[in-house]
Every structure is written in structure tokens, then in C-alpha cells.
Simulated assay, not measured.
Amino acid sequence: MRTGVYPGTFDPVTLGHMDIIRRGAKLVDRLVVGVTTNPSKSPMFSLEERMEMVKREVGEIGGEIHVVAFDSLLMDFAEREGAKVIVRGLRAVADFEYEYQMAGMNQQINPRVETVFLMADVSLQPIASRLVKEIALFGGDIHKFVPARVRDEVVARVEKIGRKGS
């Protein structure tokens, strides 16, 4: 069985993430969506909330997709999950430079795991979780960027923490 890992913070999960999950799941027998916390980011949602969001959204895709939290080096997580492939999404040239460097470092850490890059669908390339949160915090409409239930959760969280510019 060929296992792949698609890691990310998914804060919140976007339509771009969902596109990569759907397409990545076709490349492997088992896809593990690894939800982590990036110490350099301030998450809007807790790890548990992000896990639930992703689980709910991938549940509609079908296939063998598992959502697992991790707090370790990606290559250690991939090894624990038995993955031979890391799936990464690319939106733009700036993504490529960062991802290329990470893939090189990961190859040095564990040469048994390959990194595969998937280009985001053209209509989804500009979407970034960071921008979705910023738009929502300023009262903008995010329905084009996230699944409907995720939009409702983001809007509710913004109402709870308070909109900027009001």
C-alpha cells in the first residue's frame, strides 16, 4: 500500500487545500492529512478545531483519507505513518522557492521519502489561509475561498474575537 502525507496548519482549511487533498488522494492508496501547528503563526483555531474541520470536509471525498495531528519533524511523522510520498501544493513562484528548499532539507533527513508537488487549480491559486483570515477580520466575504461550513466557523470566530476596522 502506497501512503502519502499532506501536511499543513489548515487554519482554516481552504478550497485550495481541498483541491490538493482530492488530487493527492488519487496518487496514493492512503493519504494522511497531517495537521500541525506552526510556531511562527498565530492560529485562529485550536488544533482540535482544525482537526474537526478537516475531518468533516475530507469525509465527503471518499477513499482512504486519514486526518492525524502531529507535532514533530515532518519526515519523522512521514516515517511513523509509513509514507513514501509527501504531497505539497504550489500556488506561485514564491511557494516554489520555499518548497524547493524544504524538499531538499527533507531529502537530506530521510531520502526514502519523495516530495511531490501539485499545482493548485488556476482558480484557487491566490487562496491562502492567512489572507482568508485577514479578509474575514475586516468584514470581507470569504465564501469563494473556503467550504460553506468553514466560512460559517470563521465568521463566528471573527464575531467572537471582534472585527478589525470597526
Rank of each mutant, 00 (worst) to 15 (best):
R2I: 15
T3N: 04
G4N: 10
V5L: 13
Y6L: 14
Y6W: 06
P7R: 09
P7L: 12
G8K: 04
T9K: 10
T9Q: 08
P12Y: 02
V13G: 01
T14H: 03
I20F: 09
R23S: 08
R23T: 07
A25R: 05
A25L: 06
L27E: 07
L27F: 04
L31G: 02
V32P: 05
V32H: 06
G34V: 09
S40Y: 11
K41V: 01
S46H: 03
E48Y: 05
E49R: 04
R50V: 11
M51F: 10
M53I: 08
M53K: 01
M53A: 02
K55A: 00
E57S: 05
G59H: 09
I61C: 08
G63K: 06
H66L: 15
V67I: 07
V68Q: 13
F70Y: 15
S72Q: 11
L73P: 03
D76R: 13
K84H: 11
K84L: 12
I86K: 05
V87Y: 05
R88V: 07
L90R: 11
V93G: 09
A94R: 11
A94N: 08
Y98I: 13
Y98Q: 11
A103R: 03
G104N: 15
G104A: 08
G104I: 05
G104W: 11
Q107V: 07
Q107H: 13
V113F: 08
T115E: 06
A120L: 14
I127E: 01
I127K: 05
A128I: 05
R130V: 08
V132T: 04
E134F: 04
I135H: 04
I135Q: 00
I135G: 00
A136F: 00
F138W: 14
G139E: 05
G139T: 10
G140D: 11
D141K: 14
I142C: 04
H143K: 15
V146Y: 02
D152V: 03
E153L: 15
R157G: 01
V158C: 02
V158L: 00
K160Y: 01
I161H: 00
G162S: 02
R163G: 00
G165W: 13
G165R: 13
